[in-house]
């Protein structure tokens, strides 16, 4: 199985490749990708060097151009696709119908992957993208169980890639406006979710309160660590209950499900975290490479290596187990 690793910076790209990544994915330093954070991503020269480095080590580079182009400014996204082709990217990861059409028409030889932001959650839809835009691989949304993934693979020739580690979206990706409701900035339009520019930490009444766009998302005792106020992982009240109504502050770790995902016909395992440091990326990649190599050689999965890297020290296998729903 192929391991697809995040690279938010050239240093992370090199670290991931050296740690054994088969493939890295990255984005240009603008609003064309869904990790549009200050100090992250690649300018064109860095991308050229990154691709040369990866190719020199036998690894592939995928470029995520996975936000939805802004009306009246589509040229920015079209240049990103054209530049990805010129720079020799192994594939582009796209979500927008219009941009898929642009890429298929203008750069037919450039491999097209369907981003998780397109939330293609069944074989009919995946096959439709394949027939219409020549999509060769789909990154599955984080709403499917392992048996459902197996059923999809039985009905499509399109390769499937699934998230196995990192930040977990609770909502179907590319179909969530919670962030813009609270802050005006969204993943689809701006490539950001719960952006730091709208976060306010304040000590009040002996507690550390984390607000997003003025809404209280978390409060913690002053001496406790306060989690980042990602909206869907906040603590809220509904009816007579208070708590993490949408999702606990956990991150995804499906390492132990790798054999089942393999059996389900999954081609590639994706690690989230382009915003993470090079050393984090290297460590995660090493662990996953070891797990996949163990699988290939018929050895048992190494256990629990990644727990301490998980957000808030707690992890979940998410929708891969049906009870999550």
């Amino acid at each position: 199985m192929e391991i697809v690793c995040p690279a938010g910076t050239p240093a992370s790209l090199r670290a991931a490749v050296r740690a054994g990544a088969h493939t890295v994915y990255c984005g240009f330093a603008d609003e064309t990708n869904a990790r549009n954070f200050p100090g992250l991503n690649f300018d064109r020269a860095e991308m050229r060097e990154g691709i040369a480095f990866a190719h020199g080590h036998g690894a592939k580079v995928l470029i995520a151009i996975n936000t939805f182009p802004r009306a009246g400014a589509e040229g920015i996204w079209h240049s990103a696709v054209s530049d990805a082709a010129d720079l020799g990217a192994d594939a582009v990861i796209l979500a927008d119908l219009g941009l898929l059409d642009y890429a298929a028409q203008n750069h037919p030889a450039l491999r097209r992957h369907l981003s998780v932001q397109a939330a293609a959650a069944n074989a009919d839809m995946i096959n439709y993208y394949a027939e219409t835009f020549g999509v060769r691989r789909v990154v599955l949304p984080r709403v499917l169980s392992v048996p459902e993934i197996a059923a999809i693979n039985a009905e499509t020739e399109v390769e499937t890639e699934v998230f196995v580690f990192g930040g977990l979206c609770v909502m179907a990706e590319g179909r969530c406006s919670l962030s813009s409701y609270a802050t005006g900035k969204s993943p689809n339009m701006n490539g950001v979710c719960s952006p730091p520019s709208h976060v306010d930490y304040r000590k009040e009444d002996g507690e550390l309160k984390a607000r997003l766009g003025g809404y209280l998302i978390h409060s913690a005792a002053e001496d406790e660590p306060a989690p980042y106020p990602t909206l869907c992982k906040g603590c809220f009240t509904a009816g007579d209950q208070s708590g993490y109504l949408f999702e606990d502050p956990v991150s995804l770790n499906a390492e132990q499900l790798i054999p089942q995902l393999h059996k389900a016909g999954v081609t590639a395992l994706k690690i989230e975290g382009r915003q993470r440091s090079a050393s984090y990326v290297a460590q995660v990649v090493k662990n996953f490479r070891a797990a996949v190599d163990a699988l290939t050689s018929g050895q048992p999965m190494p256990a629990g290596m990644l727990a301490r890297l998980s957000e808030g020290q707690a992890s979940t296998t998410g929708a891969y187990k049906k009870t999550w729903r």
């Binding site: 939805f68 182009p69 802004r70 009306a71 009246g72 589509e74 979500a95 927008d96 119908l97 219009g98 941009l99 059409d101 642009y102 590319g174 179909r175 406006s177 813009s180 409701y181 969204s186 689809n188 339009m189």
Partner: peptide, 25 residues
């Protein structure tokens, strides 16, 4: 997700006659 003209045009060519835009636009 209809955020731009290309997507709108593509849907129009496919047969769309009315499009309710995403509320966040």
């Amino acid at each position: 997700n209809v955020y731009n003209e290309s997507t709108l045009r593509w849907l129009g060519a496919r047969g769309a006659v009315r499009i309710c835009l995403p509320p966040e636009l």
